[in-house]
Simulated assay, not measured.
Amino acid sequence: MAPARTARRAAALGLGALWWWAVLRLALEPGAGVLEGAVAVGGWGLSVLPVHCVPRRSAAGALGAGRWRRALRAAVGPPGPATARGTRRSGEDAAAGPYGP
């Protein structure tokens, strides 16, 4: 094992033991104070950091930008001219609506 890896594991083990000591002391000792609370809250705060996130482009299986837009355009077709809201085009029945009876 490389020395850097050993040092990281030792630091993680030591800090984990310190955090568990603080949590157990808070739970079991009536005289636990601010120091134990700060260690416990600080360790919990570090655990919720998104340290395992990677940029979208370098993530495994990442999709390219605009993929959904291209798929929608391929399925629906290019956008046509817009009609004003509430107006009817020729051939549309007012009772049936624009999609038929």
Rank of each mutant, 00 (worst) to 15 (best):
A60G: 11
D93N: 15
G80E: 13
A2W: 02
G42C: 11
L15M: 12
P78F: 03
E92N: 01
S47N: 10
V34K: 04
A17L: 00
L63K: 13
A71K: 10
P81W: 02
P3Y: 08
G91Q: 08
L28V: 15
W68F: 09
G64L: 05
S47M: 15
R70D: 01
A38H: 07
A59G: 09
A60Y: 11
L15H: 08
W19G: 01
L26G: 01
R88P: 02
V51E: 06
R8F: 05
R89W: 12
W21E: 00
L24I: 14
L46S: 09
L13V: 05
A11Q: 12
M1W: 05
G86K: 14
R25A: 09
L63I: 10
R8I: 15
P55Y: 03
R8D: 06
R67S: 07
D93M: 12
V39A: 07
G64E: 02
A75R: 15
L24G: 00
E36L: 10
P98K: 14
A38P: 01
G14Q: 06
L13D: 01
S47F: 02
A17W: 00
H52G: 10
E29M: 03
L72Y: 09
A71L: 13
W68Y: 06
W68A: 06
G61R: 04
H52I: 09
G80S: 11
D93E: 15
L28S: 07
V48E: 05
G31Y: 02
A11F: 10
G43T: 03
C53W: 15
L72H: 04
A94S: 07
T83F: 06
A82F: 08
L35N: 06
W19K: 11
G42D: 02
R25E: 10
W19R: 10
L28H: 06
V48C: 02
A11N: 07
Y99W: 14
A32C: 14
A2R: 08
A10R: 13
A95H: 07
A60D: 08
H52F: 11
P55H: 10
R73F: 06
V23E: 01
P101G: 12
A17H: 00
G86V: 06
G91N: 02
H52M: 07
G61E: 00
P79V: 14
P101F: 05
A4C: 10
A2P: 10
P79F: 09
L63F: 06
G16R: 00
P50N: 03
A2D: 03
V39L: 14
A40I: 11
W20P: 00
V39K: 11
G14N: 08
R88Y: 04
H52C: 04
R70N: 02
L49P: 05
G77V: 03
H52S: 12
G14P: 00
C53A: 13
G64V: 07
A75M: 14
L63M: 09
T6D: 03
R8Q: 11
G37K: 11
